[in-house]
Amino acid sequence: MSRTDQALAAVAELTGDTPASARRLGGGDAAATFEVGLADGGTVFAKTASADMPGASAAEAASLAWLAEADSVPVPAVHGHDEHWLVTDHIRTASPTKPAAEELGRGLARMHAAGAPAHGAPPPGGPSDAWIGLAPMRNEPTPEWPSFYAAHRIEPYLRRAVDSGTVTAQEGEVISRVCAHIEDLAGPAESPARLHGDLWSGNVHWGDGGDGTRAWLIDPAAHGGHRETDLAMLQLFGCPHLDRVLSAYDEVHPLAEGWRDRVSLHQLFPLLVHAVLFGRGFATQAVTAARSALG
């Protein structure tokens, strides 16, 4: 059975709707995405994960449901999922606008304020062993953010990067110093926020909101954590009208003093993930971020 036929079958089984057509949007043989037209004229989005990513569909479905509960930033509704497939709303693409960016900033502030049981807590019903992109990510509830961030966000990816030779031993020592001094670098203590968890610009989908453009959050790796981590990741690869996003956020939920000085600390995690997945270029960026965080 072709991937397209599998998508049609998955939508029929998971939603009870009758699919009429499927258009492949992207992905390789192991993972693919589809826009699936329904017999009643509607459309849904179907996504399959690689066989090397067990539990990915369940983790994403739980993440989307948890973020939706905050009733802050729109996320696609989940129509069904199983071990291999996830079916959600299909959101038509639109152009970014300044008002939508400001709405995103305010929504992120409310989403983070919705909170989490602990730093590192997975979404309700979500697995502890989840994924960020193609990399495994462990969600382990931890009382304090600094120890969670060092033990479960920096050190696992640093070990993998050093073991593979992507990060040299000397560079690894620089990054390890961040973990050793994390209590001094972390800034004021904050309650655990409800994070998207993989908030780079590609996971902000500018789409039709019914009455104009809205920014939708897609592909989350949600967990409890420090709200500055989401915002730092958003700054890492850029975002349309980013200044409007951050200003609107700060108006609703003011950031702690010195947050701009901590951006490199919070970017260290996604940079190490990218180093593990994509190689040396991101490793050098991670070392630069570590040096900047250490001051």
Rank of each mutant, 00 (worst) to 15 (best):
L277M: 12
A77D: 12
R106T: 08
P254E: 10
G41A: 03
L64R: 01
R160W: 12
T88E: 07
A59D: 06
V178Q: 10
L25E: 13
A293S: 07
V87A: 11
D71W: 01
G187Q: 05
P146V: 01
L268H: 08
V44Y: 06
F282A: 12
R227V: 01
A58G: 14
G295N: 13
H266M: 11
E155W: 05
D71Y: 03
P96D: 00
G80N: 08
L158A: 01
D40P: 05
F34I: 10
D250Y: 04
G209T: 13
R106C: 02
S128N: 14
M111W: 06
I91A: 06
P156D: 00
L271V: 08
L231S: 11
F34P: 00
L217E: 04
G133I: 11
P254Q: 08
G212F: 01
V73K: 04
Q6M: 08
A180N: 05
I154A: 02
V44M: 05
G126N: 03
E35G: 15
R244I: 03
L108A: 07
P122N: 08
W85G: 00
Y157K: 15
R227I: 02
P123R: 14
A222R: 13
L108P: 00
E251R: 09
P156N: 01
P143R: 11
R110I: 04
L242T: 07
A20W: 12
L217V: 01
A150G: 03
D40T: 13
L231D: 13
D29H: 12
P117A: 14
V75G: 04
D261V: 05
L158C: 03
P127F: 13
G224Q: 04
V11H: 08
W131R: 01
L272P: 10
W259L: 10
S128P: 09
L134V: 14
H241T: 15
A9S: 14
G115S: 06
S176F: 01
D163H: 07
G126H: 05
P74W: 14
A62D: 03
A62H: 08
Q6K: 14
H90S: 10
A70Q: 08
F282H: 11
H196Q: 07
P192D: 11
L217I: 09
D89Q: 07
S21T: 15
A221W: 06
R159Q: 14
A109C: 03
S292G: 06
E171R: 00
T166E: 15
A130Y: 07
T48E: 02
G133D: 02
T43F: 09
E83R: 13
T142Y: 05
